[in-house]
Design a protein around this nucleic acid. Structure first.
Lengths: 306, 306
DNA sequence: CCATGTGATAGATCAAAACTATCAATGATG
DNA sequence: CATCATTGATAGTTTTGATCTATCACATGG
């Protein structure tokens, strides 16, 4: 049991436009009998008469006009698909499902999204926040196309493209003695309590390494669910915290409520990478997106910050 | 330069749904190589990769997902067309371009339209008022599908289906002596001035015949453009007028402002007919519409009126 | 009554889509 | 580690269906 074909629709539309079989056939670059037959085939398929042939010039029946109108629209939609594909061949198109850590996405992506949308109007990002390790699995299963995540990252068959290094900073409650000293050194932090995020987050593991290194104390009782809540808790005196620089520089984040420490003899970074499945057809596009992100991040981080 | 086919779209959608070539092929009732080839053909035509084949289960590329979404929609639109045609086979569907005299349409059609819409939800009437003789030409040229018009009507190859006879009534300005007499006879109207419509209207010709017959005087100076303006002019004392009964019985028309005369020894009618081109495919539908109109008109005219 | 213009029909040709059979790559399993 | 199952791709053939050329039937208008 066949289906009406687009070609038959095109013939119907041509007849509706020209009201003349031969001219319609010319417009479709086929012979008149071809058009005649195919139109009959369409009528047989639909079980209705579409054209009044005993008139001159030919007239469509009411249902013929209705169907011609819809056919025209369908043909345009198909043309749209082909135009979209043509643009997608060079530029990029489609919805890229994009996973990102909540410790980075909200502070870096808005600018990126706007920029990408300007450069590639046919491409859209569907952004989903989540725990990096979980998202790596989703990526492998094909539920995500691309990931922006701190390193290291586990997962097989994943292409990992390091993008930039983001400095980490220690913030203290404003009233804390350490926060008021003109110069802070690593040993001043020994024994200090640090707040961190949900242990499944990459940030938690890194914070623990840093605390060990400083001889500080990672508080297990409080788990922030976002950098914002971390800052709020630190600001209200519950402990110190380690915050990434892009968060501190962002408008939504900022340094209200907490005091950033400037340690002469200490610094830390995290590496951010873009990730996609090895060997996918869209790798080129993903690489363009990755480069856009890296250059935007470096642009921000290269500005003076003090 | 070919076009993508609906079948290829269906295969793409099936792959998007099943993420599996063989199962998708089964769902389409074709063999797996067929689906494989046609999908490749579609990719070649569009010039983009739609499916990641080195994954398991297969994944669509972002542009593949986008195009699959649009393809799904296009296939649904086609299904819609076929469903519409199926309904049109028995009931009626499409927009019927319907011409009608302004001396009848506004007072009869509103009820008809509602009734037809209830019985045939897929059919719509596009109603256009105009001069009957002109509309007969439009009908012959295929610019209208159907006409509701007073007889007689000129035109070749037109099927004329008489529907009902509508009584005509004479109305007078309320203050006029004739309007106040208990009994009026034809000779009382001799010499009286009658208003009428634009001479191109059928009503004008009929009014002239009636005036000749009554020895009355058809005033050439005033030409109404509608029955309403005719009633207004008569009401303000400019002359008598001849109005059809459906107008007088309608809510919008009515007998305010004028007095209807009751003549014992005189009456007149006009015949209303439905008209369409001889031999059109939709004749059955037109006949159903015509019968609906006739029965509604008779229903109204059979009610007591005095 | 013939010239002209219209769409329909017949039969041959050609292109596209389908099938069967088989292969190559991958990943799981004894 | 060899083996087997699964998956999609490929080759070659057949079938289907869309197209062409040539011609017809019918109507219209000089």
């Amino acid at each position: 049991m066949g289906m009406s074909t687009l070609r038959q629709f095109a013939y119907l539309v041509a007849v509706a436009d020209h009201r003349h079989f031969r001219r319609a056939a010319d417009a479709c670059a086929v012979s008149q009998p071809t058009l005649s037959q195919q139109l009959r085939a369409l009528e047989a398929r639909l079980g209705v008469t579409l054209v009044e042939r005993n008139e001159s010039p030919v007239q469509l029946t009411p249902i013929g006009r209705e169907i011609a109108t819809r056919a025209r629209r369908i043909l345009l939609d198909v043309k749209d698909v082909e135009a979209l594909a043509r643009r997608a061949r060079h530029g990029m198109a489609g919805t890229v499902r994009f996973g990102v850590t909540p410790t980075l996405g909200p502070y870096l992506l808005p600018a990126i999204v706007a920029q990408l949308h300007r450069r590639f109007p046919d491409m859209r990002l569907y952004i989903r926040e989540g725990i990096p390790d979980e998202q790596a699995r989703e990526l492998a299963r094909g539920e995500l196309d691309m990931l922006l995540s701190p390193l290291p990252l586990s997962g097989s068959d994943l292409h990992i493209e390091p993008l930039f290094r983001e400095p980490l900073h220690i913030v203290a409650p404003p009233g804390h003695p350490v926060a008021q000293a003109p110069l802070v050194r690593r040993q001043d932090l020994a024994g200090i309590g640090f707040l961190s995020l949900d242990p499944r987050h990459h940030a938690y593991r890194q914070d623990r390494v840093i605390c060990d290194e400083l001889g500080a104390d990672l508080l297990e009782d409080y788990e922030g669910t976002s950098l914002d809540s971390l800052r709020q808790m630190a600001g209200s005196g519950l402990g110190f915290a380690i915050l990434p620089e892009l968060y501190l520089r962002s408008e939504v984040g900022g340094e209200d409520m907490v005091t950033r420490l400037h340690l002469a003899d200490w610094s830390a970074n995290r590496s951010i990478a873009a990730v996609w499945r090895e060997g996918v057809a869209f790798a080129d596009s993903y690489r363009v997106i990755a480069e856009t992100i890296a250059s935007e991040a470096r642009r921000i981080l290269d500005q003076p910050f003090r």
